[in-house]
Structures are given as structure tokens and as C-alpha cells.
């Protein structure tokens, strides 16, 4: 018992283990200076992430440093940066894990830089939007949100695409992708993996519509399976798997070797859930129905 307690205190120690140099990319559109690297000395405690290091710099050394972050626990996907030679989430990368005395922090490559470490992801989101990343149904009454009832899907059918639904849209995959390094219009691993995710969803009937968007030069044919996107993905989504399976899906379907998936039926009965007494009603919708 005493041993365990001692260990716990040592894990959560506030003791400074070493001092590292943060070499941070600085650029501001307003000061007229070209992009440059600036060094900061940061004392490192056990468990400190690169994001914590940036917080330390901003709080104690230089309040002009800009970077994007939100949840600080690898869920929101805001803090993607190029840290010591790989695109990583700053909040998911511990400084000590890097085993380096100099931590080089740059904005994600292959995106325009807005300021310091903040990349412009608007193209990235536009590419995502362009592959129709939502369920498309043919029935007129199910096109509205929400549909009239739930669609029935088995757990097996769910697992065929669930992995890709874990994507947080952090943008690391496009920063790693060699094709995106030169090709501005290539849809990129994220959008293509999402296209596969919706194509493979039994609740979706939009394969033909998405096919038109994918059978273009900037579609999955620009991918040559270098696999870097999957290597940097912080959520294990494996976009490279999605893109290869998407190519197979399109080609085998066109050759008639693969049948379209069966379509999930609409449940005939409403689920019989009753509100327990004493539970208040949900608040009104904040987004108005069209």
C-alpha cells in the first residue's frame, strides 16, 4: 500500500524533469515579416504535452503566439501540427515521448498558413463537403431530417464502415499525403475515406451519385498507397484502407463483380421507449427545421 502511494505521487509530480527548446514557426500576415522560427525555453514536467508546452509559452513567454486548440484530449482534432518531423496532434504528443531536446513545431504542411501555427483548413472541409458525406435515401419522405423512423442495421453492417466514422477531421492525413504535396485538387485521404464510409453504409443509397464525383482525375486514382495518411492518423481511422477499398468498390461494381449492398429497411414500428416520470422534456431545437 505504501509503495503504491509513493509511486502515485511520483507519477503526478510537479518536478521539472528537463528543459527543452521549443523551436516554433512564427508568421503574422500583419507585421510584413517573412515566416521564421523562434526559440523558447520550456521546463518540462512529466505528462506534459506539446500543447501544454505551447500554453506555457503563451502564458509566460510570448502572448502573441497563435495556435488552434480546443478539447486538449484528441477528440476535437483542432491542434494538428508538424511536430519533430511528423504531423501529430499537439495534445496527444507528450514532450518526453519525443525524446528530443529541441521540439520543432510548425504548422501542418500542405495547407496555407493563417498565422503562426494555424493552418487554413477551409479547402479541406470543402473537399469533405464535395463527396456528399451524409445518408442519401431515395424515398421522398426520408430525405428530410430527421427521417420518419430509424433504419434497421445489423452490428456486422455497422462494422463495415464504423472505423471511418471515428474520423475527427483534424487534417493530419492531407499533411502527410505525398500527392497533396503537389496536387491542389486531389480530394485527399479524408474525403475519400468518408466517401467510402457512406458508400458502405447500408442505410445509404447514394453510391451512384457519389460515383460521378469520384470518377474524375482528382478522385481516388491519385492515391498510390504510400500509406502515410494512415500512419499519422491519431484515431486509427486508417484512411489509406478506406481509399484502397473505395477503388476496389468502384472498379468491381463497374465490372459487375460486386453487387451493391443491401439497403437497410425503415423500421415498421416506432421504438417503444417511454419517458420515465420526473425526467424533464428536451430543450427546444436550436437549429430551425427548413
Amino acid at each position: 500500500m505504501a509503495d503504491q502511494k509513493e509511486q502515485e505521487t511520483s507519477v503526478f509530480t510537479e518536478e521539472v524533469i528537463k528543459e527543452v527548446i521549443f523551436r516554433v514557426h512564427r508568421f503574422s500576415p500583419d507585421d510584413g515579416k517573412p515566416p521564421r522560427m523562434q526559440d523558447y525555453k520550456v521546463p518540462v514536467k512529466r505528462g506534459m504535452t506539446v500543447l501544454d508546452g505551447l500554453h506555457y509559452i503563451r502564458d509566460n513567454l510570448d502572448s502573441t503566439l497563435s495556435y488552434r486548440f480546443s478539447c486538449r484530449m484528441a477528440i476535437c482534432g483542432s491542434c494538428g501540427m508538424f511536430i519533430n518531423n511528423l504531423p501529430r496532434l499537439a495534445c496527444k504528443t507528450q514532450i518526453l515521448e519525443l525524446e528530443a531536446d529541441t521540439i520543432e513545431v510548425k504548422p501542418l504542411p500542405n495547407y496555407e498558413v493563417i498565422k503562426d501555427l494555424v493552418p487554413d483548413l477551409s479547402d479541406f472541409f470543402e473537399k469533405h463537403r464535395s463527396v456528399m458525406p451524409y445518408l442519401i435515401r431515395e424515398e421522398e419522405e426520408e430525405k428530410i431530417d430527421p427521417p420518419t423512423n430509424e433504419f434497421l442495421q445489423t452490428p456486422d453492417e455497422l462494422e463495415r464502415f464504423l472505423q471511418f466514422a471515428y474520423c475527427t477531421k483534424c487534417g493530419l492525413c492531407l499533411a502527410g499525403c505525398p500527392t497533396v504535396a503537389t496536387d491542389k485538387v486531389f480530394l485527399g485521404p479524408m474525403a475519400l475515406a468518408q466517401a467510402f464510409r457512406y458508400n458502405s453504409d447500408t442505410r445509404d443509397q447514394g453510391f451512384e451519385k457519389r460515383l460521378e464525383l469520384l470518377c474524375v482525375p482528382e478522385g481516388p486514382w491519385r492515391c498510390h498507397f504510400a500509406g502515410s495518411c494512415s500512419e499519422v492518423c491519431p484515431k486509427g481511422v486508417d484512411p489509406a484502407l478506406g481509399v484502397q477499398l473505395l477503388k476496389g468498390q468502384i472498379v468491381f461494381t463497374k465490372l459487375g463483380l460486386k453487387k451493391p449492398h443491401k439497403i437497410a429497411p425503415l423500421a415498421t414500428e416506432k421504438p417503444e421507449a417511454k419517458r420515465r416520470p420526473g425526467i424533464p422534456e428536451a430543450p427546444p431545437r436550436t437549429v430551425k427545421k427548413e
Binding site: 460515383l211 470518377c215 486514382w221 477503388k247 472498379v251 463497374k254
Partner: peptide
């Protein structure tokens, strides 16, 4: 719709 044909060829 040409791209997948070119690719498989």
C-alpha cells in the same frame, strides 16, 4: 466516368 477504366487497364 473514364478514370476507373483507365486505372484498371
Amino acid at each position: 466516368m473514364r478514370e476507373p477504366t483507365l486505372w484498371i487497364l
